[in-house]
Design a binder for these strands. Structure first.
Lengths: 178, 178
DNA sequence: AGCATAAATAATAA
DNA sequence: TTATTATTTATGCT
């Protein structure tokens, strides 16, 4: 129940002490510092109103290869989970010549895909499939997509959402509701 | 053109038979039962004159997190779509807390192992260990796995991923970002 | 307005 | 790096 965001907002209640270097040190950097970094990074990102994906793309320009959404997330989110950091040296980072800001102008590519609507016939077939197998293979998905005349991705997402709905239901049931 | 509401009103024209357990079983619960549950839930809600949003807020008080309107809807509506349920055994659910966690016992196309999900408690312990030692020995891993009730391999991988995440963070830091 | 649900984003297991 | 799950957002209905 502690998302990075929440930890982000939560006020750090403790240790103003510069973590005594007894703690875990990774690559010469203290764990606490790493957490602090992750926190600051996310604040920056949110402040700029960027998604992880966007930051990844932006970084790919200046920095080397490419940071995928997963990479960003993996690198930072994880560190914040257990974070209860000394709320000091806050913007020991903040200052530097932020590369990120330069990309604030990036795209307006905010086009959301038009919500597709399935025909009753399509839904019937999809549901039938779902009852038989909630996790169709890639081939099956492609087959369905072709057969029904929808984009493959759309069909894939449909199954994702459908599984989610089912799981939510089961969760509620087991909670003893109704 | 078949909204859940309509299905709701429509009288179930068939099978009073306890669905023969041949059907899809999710987490020990039969699909038909799930549909039945969804139907009952909605009836309850309407009976109380509540909106989905209201129910969500109400549940958030007693139950943990928060159920958004979307959540309620997503959980229940979907199940009713194809519903033609045996209107029997009403609260065979109400009781036991079936491991809602991972439904899908269905396997075909075993390409990828099902993503396991850790409980907050498990994560807490794992993180604690990680902070103490990022490279647990084989014995330690086995111990943790046993203690937490996860497969040894799953625990091992968790440490791999965790180390990777940490390394990535350090890399970014040293790149001078933020 | 409220519902249903597709699409987008975040998180992370494999 | 990939694939899936979890959560949120937002849009097309009625």
């Amino acid at each position: 129940k502690s998302t990075p965001d929440e930890d982000l907002l939560a006020d750090s209640p403790n240790q103003p002490t510069i973590s005594q270097s007894s703690g875990n040190v990774v690559d010469g950097i203290n764990l606490e510092d790493i957490k602090e970094f992750a926190k600051a990074f996310k604040l920056r990102r949110l402040g700029l109103g960027l998604t992880q994906t966007q930051v990844g793309q932006a970084l790919s320009v200046t920095e080397g290869p490419a940071y995928s959404q997963s990479a960003i997330c993996s690198a930072l989110a994880s560190q914040m989970l257990a974070a209860q950091l000394s709320s000091q040296q806050q913007n020991m980072y903040a200052s530097g010549q932020n590369h990120l800001t330069d990309f604030i102008g990036m795209e307006p590519s905010k086009k959301r895909k038009r919500r597709t609507s399935f025909t009753p016939q399509a839904l019937e077939l999809l549901n039938a499939h779902f009852e038989r197998n909630t996790h169709p293979s890639g081939t099956e998905i492609t087959g369905l997509a072709h057969q029904l005349g929808y984009e493959r991705e759309v069909i894939r997402i449909w199954f994702c959402n459908k599984r989610q709905a089912l799981k939510n239901t089961v969760r509620m049931m087991s909670k003893g509701m109704v």
